[in-house]
């Protein structure tokens, strides 16, 4: 059995660790970037929807009742780029599907969709949860000090319609995300085929070298 020099063995081990860390880091960054892009696209689209008199939460109702025909872009929006913001949502959702599907090969395919929805909604509901925590803290303070509410934060009434709208947008992102998953699977297959081709080539080269000795 061929023995490797300890330095070489160490170097190979380090390469293995590096490969693992690289996947952890790049998958995290890639997912975060695609998620941020998708949510950003959904937020821009929400602005557009509000301008034309609808929203993500009302969208399905408008489509079902045929109110879509009444949508009119305001005059100030003529020639602006807002109508194209859904493209951003679609593009980043597709890329998100590609990244997650290609990276999380050990996951069940269908699990990726709830994971995407979960991540999306955690990000979207974070301000709401922080707000609730602050209000709770304030109430606890008031209770400890045996006084009335010491300070009512701005917007404590809870105008979180934007949050709910973006949460609804996550449902619409499923379709492009699933499409991206198909792309990711395809990319993985192509990559595996390529790796196999390279391995066969290397194996032949190794055999030739062994036989020539």
């Amino acid at each position: 059995m061929r023995r490797r020099h300890p330095l070489q063995a160490g170097w190979r081990r380090w390469r293995g660790v590096q490969r693992a860390i690289r996947q952890v880091v790049f998958l995290t960054i890639g997912t975060a970037a695609m998620l941020a892009g998708s949510i950003g696209g959904a937020a821009l689209t929400l602005d557009y929807f509000r301008a034309i008199g609808t929203s993500w939460t009302r969208l399905h109702r408008d489509v079902l009742t045929g109110r879509v025909s009444q949508w009119r872009a305001p005059e100030w929006m003529q020639g602006s780029g807002e109508p194209f913001s859904p493209i951003m949502l679609v593009m980043f959702s597709v890329l998100g599907g590609v990244v997650l599907s290609a990276g999380l090969t050990h996951w069940k395919r269908w699990m990726l969709i709830p994971a995407w929805l979960g991540l999306w909604n955690v990000v979207v509901f974070l301000p709401l949860m922080t707000h609730k925590a602050v209000v709770l803290f304030e109430r606890v303070c008031a209770w400890v000090l045996s006084a009335g509410p010491v300070y009512v934060p701005r917007g404590s009434g809870g105008d979180f319609t934007g949050t709910y709208d973006l949460a609804a947008a996550s449902m619409y992102s499923i379709a492009p995300f699933a499409f991206g998953m198909l792309g990711g699977s395809l990319a993985r297959r192509l990559s595996a085929m390529n790796a196999r081709r390279r391995w066969i080539k290397r194996r032949r080269w190794l055999r030739r070298r062994r036989e020539s000795r």
Binding site: R13, G16, V17, R19, A20, I21, Q23, V24, L27, T28, G103, L104, T105, H106
Partner: peptide, 15 residues
Amino acid sequence: LYVRLVLPPRLRGPL
């Protein structure tokens, strides 16, 4: 937990 979530079993060995 994160390594289990993100890495396929074959890549977990180095960690």
